[in-house]
């Protein structure tokens, strides 16, 4: 797609240890504006560790992180956020009993008036919430509705819209579809594509190649902390992804074991 521009984010041989456990080693990939980079891997492969490095929760022990081609080093989630890297964790950071528009602006409330009369500009917050959600194609009639009344997929979508609104250039989604049914997962993937089309670089973490393949432009496959490669979409089919994830030969072995005895 946009092969000539410098990547928003680039990882070079990144590694991370937890004490004596090597959680990640030798990971390289790129995240480009308007593209989706999928990180795939089984449980414990190191996916969450990788995004925590991108989100500023952890520091890499080895390797380099480049933002717009320049070396970057995030000491805290706040620094990463200020650099335009927003993370939507699985537990979402939303308050179920609060209205959608209150959640949308939580921690970044627009105000009007000054001194003791400085107040939350509710009219603007409601208006922007409605507009931003509509721009993402999210159909919510009543922004006064508590977030808890939304379905899991709708909640993910609101979180994505919020990140995009607050100027995320890189949007990291940690397993946004893992707890969802087929239909809801499809809805969320559609919003991922929306964010991509608005020029955001998306990092989508998943262990489901069926979710990753249709939306992804690049696939980083992890296995036990090591990279099995970072492939552009043209170089890898969905079946190959599935095989890679399960560790190729291991899957063949499993299929062999599960087959009925011939006689």
């Amino acid at each position: 797609m946009t092969a000539e521009t410098a990547p928003l984010l680039e990882l070079r041989d990144v590694g991370k240890d937890y004490g004596s456990v090597i959680a990640l080693d030798g990971i390289s990939t790129t995240v480009r504006a308007g593209e989706v980079t999928c990180v795939l891997g089984d449980n414990g492969a190191g996916k969450s560790t990788l995004i925590k490095i991108l989100a500023g929760v952890h520091r890499a022990d080895r390797g380099q992180l480049l933002l717009d081609g320049r070396p970057a080093d995030f000491g805290s989630p706040r620094e990463a956020l200020d650099a335009g890297i927003a993370t939507v964790y699985q537990d979402l950071a939303m308050i179920p009993l609060m209205a959608i528009w209150r959640n949308f602006f939580l921690g970044a409330e627009p105000t009007r008036g000054r001194g003791p009369f400085r107040r939350f500009d509710a009219a603007r917050a409601k208006d922007v919430t409605r507009r931003e959600l509509a721009a993402m194609g999210i159909d919510i009639r009543d922004p006064d509705q508590p977030v808890g009344t939304l379905s899991g997929g709708e909640r993910q979508s609101v979180a994505i819209a919020r990140a995009v609104h607050f100027g995320a250039r890189v949007l990291i989604l940690d397993e946004p579809t893992s707890a969802l049914g087929v239909k809801q997962a499809g809805v969320v993937l559609r919003y991922v594509a929306q964010a991509r089309d608005r020029g955001v670089g998306v990092v989508l973490i998943t262990h489901n190649p069926h979710h990753a393949h249709p939306v992804g432009d690049r696939f980083l496959v992890l296995n036990r902390g090591r990279s099995l490669g970072s492939f552009p979409k043209a170089d890898v089919s969905r079946d190959e992804l599935t095989r890679l994830m399960a560790g190729g030969a291991e899957l063949d072995q499993l299929a062999h074991e599960l087959e009925r005895p011939a006689t």
Binding site: D91, L92, A93, M94, I95, P96, L97, M98, R102, F105, L106, G107, E109, F120
Partner: peptide, 13 residues
Amino acid sequence: NWVFATGGDEVAA
């Protein structure tokens, strides 16, 4: 807004 959020889910807030 912070009062509602802190009481609703302190970690998320």
